[in-house]
Design a binder for these strands. Structure first.
Lengths: 210, 210, 210, 210
DNA sequence: CATGAATGAGTGTTCATTCAT
DNA sequence: TATGAATGAACACTCATTCAT
């Protein structure tokens, strides 16, 4: 499956989509295929066959394949965004929130390993990613983290001698890397253990605290 | 460019091998194409044309496309491996070595941004990666880092209450993520600044140190 | 023309199927090419061009080339099967039926020499033949002969001191070999004469009967 | 492996070949490959590699692939020809000789199943076969059989009301067909049993002898 | 809203063959 | 006698895409 443009032809964008049966069937077929094989290995014909729908119909709804992928991802991302906001409520202190944030990320990646794999291996890889709708959604995520860091800096919990962007990248990079093997091999991981170690390292550093 | 197997067909393996002109031209053509476009978008026809060589010749030297990619990468990796070992010589203390290691990684990524992009976005993404020759080479890298961490734990510089594997992943993830934007957009980055911030975070943590 | 699998992808199997014009054109083009050259020498491009159809369409209807061949053969075979059953009706005695069977075989081979050539030289040669659908169809043929032999053994017309399978092979082998030169050189043959001699030999043996 | 012409460039034809090492290695490599895979699937590159010889060298000796095949076959055929003549010596009576001939054929096919497979499936299939050198050699075989039949007719052992050519074809066809499954699946066969049944059928016919 | 039929333009790969050395 | 390097031409197969109905 290849594609060039990122033309937006998202029926959802203009309001509550009527979501005709064909469209739903296509999305479901695509999701189920994504569980079995790489995005690049999925063909229109396969989707159509799995969905029990004509090939041509896919064009009606998703002009190009990347579009379909992004729409599926956007669904997940939107849901996570709601969840993370809810998950952080009632927690005091920036570091406490950060711990929760990290745990939530790992836990989500664990719950939806397929989705995580696609995001890390397929989407972020895509050269047009930073211009995509998906990227905009992930920025909302970023914002959640940045706010936590900001709060921590302001209230003195978090150091202020380092670029906040660098902190953010370190955190995301660490999370991602620690999850990568499990994601690639689709192995169960332990959010609690990973979070524990990650927070030790990220909060107080690798150095022995004397 | 797609491929199935990862069969090694390296004429170099049995000796110095004069490396016939055609082979060299192919590799150079491939490298130069890699600077312009994604690996997946590069075709045999393109390589052949760029190299001024017959398509069939590519097959002669590199059984399949992934093989060509891996051989090119292996070249870089071998070189880096030599360099990092040299670079660490004469440095005392695990954290000092770690700082140098981080700096070296970022600096290398900066010097060879194309290579870094391919490695992060194309190779590591590949499902057969962990069975590949390339992976074995990167494990040598890992070993260098692990030895530093080990030394640090033994001499009390580095904490011992965290899985060493988690430390390694955090470090690599952090480095990778901090370099990612520059790599993707092929922008110059500052190894010194990046290293400075990364080490602050990784050595003593995000938390305010008192 | 090469091929690997023998996957059945017969749109006809589930109903009457309008058999789209493209499919028909392909089959006809293929048949006409078969008259001119060996199966192995026929390319997709040639078929497509002859049929005035796109190459990809062949793939749509016949997953691989062997499949196309087998489907064409199956058509013939099915027709023959109906005919042979009809031809044997109203004949009394196993040897009389056998004579008719032999005559029918030779006559069919004569009528459709191209088909006969393909079957003998191309299909039966194919290593996957005995797993193919075509083979199953020819087994129906075999059954017709076996039933005749069986009847003859039971009613004392045919000897019972020889493996029935060996009789079958002798008969088929004899027919085939006697037709071979005509088939290869596409020369007219005389079913009556061939049958006469064959039956003499097969019924009462080479030995002088006194 | 494909080929068009049947150009004779047989170094043997002009006398006792010096048979340089390369040539021998090539033939041996080819023979051993023939045991493992179909003739069509064997490539020059493979032969050269197996023989430990350069690809180009094959051209020196065997202008085209069919030529190589035929030369290998000719070797076998010549040997068989000598053997059959020897085997028939000292046997009295046409039918006794015929029985021996049949047994010899089946036994040879059994001993060299690979060779038999090639001859039946690859060579005889080839459209230029009847113009080939190989065909001429097999005609020598035919002659042996024809002489037996002739003798039998003359001395009254064998019927004279049937074309001798038809007898020959029946015999060869029967032998071939009875051996075919074993040849294709490379299964051991019992020359004694096969001969016994074949001779019963061929000598006195399928019909119950009164 | 949905389909069946058909297309065009590639893709990686294969291989026999040639030739300078 | 033998080799390494290189080529040219094809081949089966793939797939996103279009369009009339």
């Amino acid at each position: 499956m290849t594609d060039n443009l990122n033309t937006t032809k998202n029926p959802d964008s203009t309001g509550p989509s009527p979501s005709p049966p064909g469209r739903i069937k296509i999305i479901q077929a695509f999701k189920s295929l994504l569980k079995k094989k790489d995005f690049d290995a999925i063909t229109w014909a396969e989707i159509a066959k799995t969905a029990g729908v004509n090939e041509g119909l896919i064009y009606k709804y998703f002009n190009n394949s990347r579009n379909l992928l992004h729409q599926v991802l956007a669904e997940y991302l939107k849901q996570y965004l709601t969840e993370i906001e809810f998950a952080l409520k009632g927690i005091n202190g920036a570091l406490n929130k950060l711990r929760k944030f990290i745990w939530f990320q790992i836990n989500s990646a664990n719950r939806e390993r397929v989705f995580a794999r696609i995001y890390i291996l397929e989407v972020r890889t895509y050269s047009g990613y930073f211009q995509s709708e998906t990227y905009k959604l992930t920025q909302e995520y970023d914002k959640v983290l940045l706010e936590i860091l900001d709060e921590g800096i302001k209230n003195g919990e978090i150091r202020d001698d380092v670029l906040i962007a660098h902190m953010r990248m370190t955190i995301f990079g660490a999370i991602e890397h620690i999850c990568l093997p499990s994601i690639i091999f689709n192995r169960e991981m332990s959010p609690d253990d990973f979070t524990e170690d990650l927070c030790k390292i990220l909060f107080s550093g690798l150095g022995k605290s004397n």
